[in-house]
């Protein structure tokens, strides 16, 4: 397998329903879906609100602020693309507006990183210049 093919499998499949999410990251904005019928905010993007199944959902821009719901530090790479990146931290971040997402905590400090740590969004580029949002301690 060529390096390019292996990186390709790491990238999300862009669909009609998530394209705006990644386009927004490119512009430095974190967005989520918000249901106009029940007010539920959610990620990942989907056509139907998982709470009330309404299709009447719009995008809203989020603050990019949140807290660490939990975290784990990788000590072995599961993919050759991460061979030189260990150790790194993957976290579940709970955003101020409600939705949670999987991301990385960058420039972390194991003495202060814990459940409940306040974090803020940092917009970066991943493999193949793919737009992504990471977080760091506030």
């Amino acid at each position: 397998m060529s390096e390019e093919t292996t990186l390709e499998e790491l990238l999300p499949v862009i669909t009609d329903f998530n394209k705006h999410y990644y386009d927004s990251l490119e512009k430095g904005e974190l967005v989520a879906k918000k249901c106009n019928d029940c007010d539920h905010s959610f990620l990942p993007a989907a056509k139907y609100c998982p709470n009330c199944l309404s299709e009447n959902v719009d995008w809203k821009v989020l603050s990019g602020e949140g807290t660490v719901y939990s975290w784990v530090e990788y000590h072995r790479p599961y993919h050759e693309a991460f061979k030189d990146k260990v150790p790194y931290v993957v976290a579940i971040v709970e955003l101020k507006e409600g939705p949670r997402l999987i991301s990385n905590i960058i420039d972390y400090d194991l003495n202060t990183l814990k459940v409940g740590t306040q974090v803020e969004a940092v917009f970066t580029k991943g493999f193949s210049n793919f737009p992504m949002v990471n977080f760091r301690e506030k």
Partner: peptide, 12 residues
């Protein structure tokens, strides 16, 4: 990789 989070190194 888990879901769409392979770019974050979320595997395994």
């Amino acid at each position: 990789p888990w879901g769409d989070s392979g770019v974050h190194g979320w595997f395994g």
